[in-house]
Design a protein around this nucleic acid. Sequence first.
DNA 1: CAACTATATAAACAGATAGTAATGTATCGA
DNA 2: TCGATACATTACTATCTGTTTATATAGTTG
Lengths: 110, 110
Amino acid sequence: MPRPLSPEILDQIAGRFRVLAEPARLRILYSLMGGERSVTELVEETGLSQANVSKHLGLLRRARFVDRRKEGLYAFYHVSDPSVETLCEIMCGRLEAQLAEQVALLEAVS
Amino acid sequence: MPRPLSPEILDQIAGRFRVLAEPARLRILYSLMGGERSVTELVEETGLSQANVSKHLGLLRRARFVDRRKEGLYAFYHVSDPSVETLCEIMCGRLEAQLAEQVALLEAVS
DNA sequence: CAACTATATAAACAGATAGTAATGTATCGA
DNA sequence: TCGATACATTACTATCTGTTTATATAGTTG
């Protein structure tokens, strides 16, 4: 039973989905799920360029998916939205279910 | 505790998020949450053009979020992925939480 | 202060995609 | 068979955005 959703709300929801709709940002989030990371550490773990990582982090932070703690020269980021992991798990679960479906179909043929 | 996610899996998850990252498609999905709809009905309810709706429905169907039942001249679509509603609710819930946070901050100032 | 490091930002380019207009395809009724 | 209807598809354009390169900012160390 969905509650009434105005076009403005749908725009905002779509915007939040869009932030997660990028492999690079999911890679960053996935690293951050292992705990707090500096930008340099994220660059190493993801293989992305420093400018690129900073830009993605800015987006993720503006969307409130992550937050930042500055310490001297470093900036440490961490996931601030507990729903991120749930969202990814749901998506991943559906992928698995669909894959299993495909396999079942193929086996039914043979 | 996230399970290990390969870059390929992350690409696929991102792709699925991208399908939901569009206000027009969320509008369509939201209509379909009210039950099965023909393309024409969706055009009326969403205010989008027929070509546009058909295109979005094609995408949603390829991503297995919706499925189609053809009956004579008509094509009836319905949500085939129960997780869609959950995903949207989580996103919507976060929006509300953040809005409440903003309000609390503003009140703390005054 | 000067050199160095970590991060952020700006400009520019390339690739992706939403929307439209036009056309195609299939089904129904006269 | 002809016209009309419902839907799908194609070609095209405009817009958006991810990436890179270069530069700016700010903290640290000598």
